[in-house]
Computed example of a mutant assay.
Amino acid sequence: MSTKTWFITGASKGFGLEFVQQLLAKGHNVAATSRKLSDLEKAAGSHENFLPLEMDITNEESVAKAINATLAKFGSLDTVVNNAGYGLIGAVEELSDAEARKNFEVNVFGSLNVIRQAMPHLRAQKSGHIINISSIGGYVGAFPGFGIYCATKFAVNGFTEALAVEAKPFGIDVTVVMPGYFRTNFLESDSIVVPQNQIDSYQSTRDSQRIHQQEINGNQPGDPVKGVAAIIEASEAQNPPLYLFLGSDSVAMGEAKSDTIKQEIGAWRELSTGTDFN
């Protein structure tokens, strides 16, 4: 297997850090980013094939600087993993405009900043792979309190589908990964945000918040080591998947949603198809 240069965002913990460790062990070049360089260096250590970078994913100049530093260090860019993001728990009504927009700014527009800066290089070499880490919440939105977070991931799924078609003529593969519950720090207080002004009426949202932070956290079925290994394995395939449902729970929820959609289309087919001009 030839050595490739990977660019990983949000790499100081969770999936991002696991990517760094596994890819370096495989002999790849790895450029990885974090909001704080010290956090990344402390977590990942040093390696001759490792370039830690401080980057503000919401600032396109900062993103461009990190991409250029990667090219200057390694002379190439092959695989981009948009992993940076954070969770937001709050009912649609109780989340402020600022809180909702900030989640989109990081989870959606941050990834778009990276893609805009990476694509010219991938197009020029007519090869590469962009991997966008979404969530099963980008396909199934029926989680009380996760409406805005799911909306950000639905957006990631949507632009990934379009990007896959746009990038194909240039020999660039595109994959959207939809993990279920993996035992990372995602549900810890430093990775999840709750509304500043909560509405008492939303008991289902408070229950969901409590269950996720006190019962699911630390008991997630997914092993992040196996999860990242699976993503890397998929990336090495001759024809990588566009959709990668990751985890047995993700697969089950994805299949259930697909069955529900199929049933709804069937039940309302006559009404739905009766709207064309005769």
Rank of each mutant, 00 (worst) to 15 (best):
I8H: 01
K13I: 12
F15G: 03
G16Y: 00
G16C: 03
L17Y: 03
E18F: 00
F19Y: 15
F19H: 06
V20Q: 05
L24E: 10
A25Y: 08
A25V: 05
K26Y: 07
K26F: 12
G27Q: 02
H28W: 04
N29E: 08
V30I: 07
T33R: 01
K36R: 12
K36S: 13
L40I: 03
E41M: 02
A43T: 04
G45D: 09
G45T: 08
S46C: 05
E48K: 14
L51G: 02
M55I: 10
D56L: 07
I57L: 14
E61A: 15
S62E: 05
V63A: 00
V63E: 00
K65Y: 12
A69T: 06
L71T: 04
A72K: 09
K73T: 15
K73V: 10
L77A: 00
V80Y: 01
V81K: 01
N82R: 04
N83P: 03
Y86D: 11
Y86M: 09
G87H: 02
G87L: 09
L88I: 06
G90M: 09
G90H: 07
A91G: 11
E94L: 04
L95R: 03
A100H: 06
R101F: 13
E105R: 02
E105F: 04
E105P: 06
E105D: 12
N107T: 08
V108W: 01
F109E: 07
G110A: 04
R116P: 00
Q117Y: 00
M119H: 03
P120V: 01
R123H: 03
R123C: 05
A124N: 11
Q125T: 02
G128E: 02
I131A: 02
S135E: 05
I136K: 09
G138W: 02
Y139T: 14
V140F: 11
A142R: 10
F143T: 13
F143N: 14
P144D: 09
G145F: 06
G145I: 07
I148C: 04
T152I: 00
A155G: 07
G158A: 10
F159G: 03
E161G: 11
A164N: 11
V165D: 08
E166K: 06
P169W: 01
I172C: 02
I172K: 00
D173G: 06
D173V: 03
V176M: 08
P179H: 09
P179Y: 03
G180Q: 09
Y181S: 10
F182I: 07
R183H: 12
S191H: 08
I192D: 15
Q198W: 13
I199H: 12
T205G: 14
T205Q: 15
T205K: 06
R206I: 11
R210N: 15
Q213G: 14
N217L: 11
G218P: 15
N219C: 15
G222F: 11
D223P: 11
P224T: 07
V225W: 10
K226T: 04
V228H: 08
A230T: 11
I232M: 07
E233H: 15
E233G: 07
P240V: 03
P240T: 05
P241R: 13
L242I: 12
Y243V: 15
Y243E: 10
S250G: 15
A252K: 15
M253A: 10
M253D: 01
M253P: 05
A256C: 10
K257Y: 08
K257H: 12
K257V: 09
D259W: 12
E264I: 13
G266N: 07
W268P: 00
E270G: 10
L271Y: 14
S272H: 07
T273C: 13
T273K: 12
F277C: 13
N278F: 12
N278H: 13
